[in-house]
Design a protein around this nucleic acid. Structure first.
Length: 483
RNA sequence: CGGGGCAUGGCUCAGUCUGGUAGAGUAUCGGUUUUGGGAACCGAGGGUCGGAGGUUCGAAUCCUCUUGCCCCGACCA
């Protein structure tokens, strides 16, 4: 640990050597998160939480722009409420945690710690909605939820996690469907623009659909180990919940009608996705748009640097902050510059700004790109523009790199044998035809532990037959192993 | 929930087979010298070996149970 090897850091397992180990080790070393005393529950540390804050703040703006308001619903849900929508309970029952006592007294009805909030929110909606004038209801909440998962991994699947859940009610089916797709689109754009994670959007099969939904749409991202990660979902709930919870309104024709609903969410899992997708052997690479620090200024501490270099470094620091950049100045005098380089690379800061005696003479700084360590010498007078340019460049490089990776790892299969062989050798995403039957879907799962991640837009002329049974294909689907 | 692995100063690990009362590196603290890719030296503090029980004169080490973590599957954001 801490020893030099080829000049760079050697303190974490290399991503190229052991991906899983790299992932969990890095999360702790970079101080994104740590394990709590309770199984499967993690502590999100400030550096990790700040990434979540940037995700949250930016998404929140997009939700507000599209007319949504935030609210907060209770953590505890009476058991009877959860049971109202049959498929919903069945789907979530195995992973619900229950509150059974208040102090020493056993409760008459046990309370579920929300695994998701449809039940409590729909109950409230049934009280609030009476007329077509009350619609649409467009509410989102930022909250924590609890699901007693059997296998957990930091950020990707933890017992308690943070997310947002939007719950809307509309007067017509069309309107609700429009909302479902609109939010899916917001997620897709957000993942691609802010997190530099290319995603494929599509529809879930019946088997993979959210418990209680009519249709579940999703965005799926391909991870470096060839597995797909569901990065967000948007559900068209139809009238399933409004009927179960009696959400009715009087329409313009003075008839009582059940509301049409949607729900949609993304979680702290997005952080897991960006760690896996962008990181390298040296550690994290956080996309500039959500990075807690977009740049770190490292003064080269040499001789009387505190009198010569540090004041200039401070000036640059204040200037960049004033321009709205998120920057850090590492002026600690215990660590050497080399140590700092490695440390901040490991933490994924996209740009390093070096300034030393030689630079001061030339009125310049050195900008270093985290992705390829490419150095550029920039006049201090142009620093603001050049820094902003480099951040944009890095944001784009990350996206392009991820997109190329996905393209290289997307295959097509016409037969079951082909599909199996691809999954067993290179993994990745596989597009095929599918007849739509659950029998064929299950056949693939049983043989290859691979599932339909999404039903995608039909590609003309391709995949005319079902990859399993050979009958006529109804959908083009994306198969992959998944997280 | 099945299969496998692991649990020892903050971190990474040695010691376990063959019981004898804990050790290294690193980190931390103090000091001196350094500093353009993880600096060197001197000195100091810090653990009773995941937890419970048992065997024994004696347990990190042997036995039983238990908890947690990691990996691979089945289930899920």
């Amino acid at each position: 640990m801490g020893k030099k090897k080829d000049g760079f850091v050697n303190q974490i397992t290399k991503r190229s050597e052991d991906f899983s180990k790299w992932y969990t080790e890095l999360i702790r070393r970079a101080e994104l998160a740590d394990y709590s005393p309770v199984k499967g529950i993690m502590v999100i540390r400030p550096y990790g939480y700040e990434i979540w804050e940037h995700i949250k703040d930016n998404l929140d703006i997009k939700f507000k722009e599209t007319g949504h308001k935030n609210a907060y619903f209770p953590l505890l849900i009476p058991e009877s409420f959860l049971k109202k929508e049959a498929e919903h309970v069945e789907g979530f029952a195995p992973e619900v945690a229950w509150v059974t006592h208040g102090g020493d007294n056993e409760l008459e009805e046990r309370l579920a710690i929300r695994p998701t909030s449809e039940a409590i929110i729909c109950h409230m909606y049934s009280k609030w909605i009476t007329s077509w004038r009350d619609l649409p209801v467009l509410i989102n909440q930022w909250a924590n939820v609890l699901r007693w998962e059997k296998v957990t991994r930091p950020f990707l699947r933890t017992t308690e996690f943070l997310w947002q859940e939007g719950h809307t009610v509309h007067a017509t089916s069309d309107e609700a469907m429009e909302e479902t797709l609109k939010m899916l689109d917001i997620y897709k754009n957000f993942c691609e623009e802010y997190l530099a994670i290319p995603v494929i959007s599509g529809l879930k099969s019946e088997k993979e659909r959210f418990a209680g939904a009519v249709k579940t749409y999703c965005i799926e991202a391909l991870m470096p180990d060839g597995k797909a990660l569901q990065a967000g979902t948007s559900h068209f709930l139809g009238q399933n919940f409004s009927k179960a919870f009696n959400i009715r309104f009087e329409n313009k024709e003075q008839e009582l009608e059940y509301g049409w609903q949607t729900s949609w969410g993304v979680s702290t899992r997005l952080i897991g996705a960006l760690i896996m997708l962008h990181g390298d052997d040296s550690g994290l690479i956080i996309p500039p748009k959500v990075a807690p620090y977009q740049g770190v200024i490292i003064p080269i501490s040499r001789g009387n640097w505190k009198e010569t270099v540090l004041p200039k470094a401070n000036e640059i620091f204040e200037n960049l902050k004033a321009q709205g950049f998120r920057v850090q100045l590492d002026d600690s005098d215990v660590a050497t510059p080399g140590w700092k380089f490695s440390e901040w690379e490991m933490r994924g800061v996209p740009v390093r700004i070096e300034i030393g005696p030689k630079d001061i003479e030339k009125n310049q700084v050195v900008l270093v790109n985290r992705i390829n360590r490419e150095k550029s010498f920039v006049s201090i007078d142009e620093l603001n523009e050049k820094f902003a340019e480099l951040l944009d460049k890095i944001q784009n490089m990350l996206f392009e790199k991820a997109k190329n990776f996905r393209e290289e790892n997307t295959s097509e299969a016409e037969t079951f044998e082909e599909l199996s062989s691809i999954i067993e050798t290179k993994r990745g995403l596989v597009t095929t035809g599918w007849c739509g039957s659950e029998t064929c879907e299950t056949a693939v799962k049983d043989k290859n532990a691979t599932t339909i991640r999404a039903i995608i837009e039909n590609q003309e002329g391709k995949h005319k037959i079902c990859v399993v049974c050979g009958k006529e294909s109804k959908h083009t689907v994306l198969f992959a192993k998944s997280y």
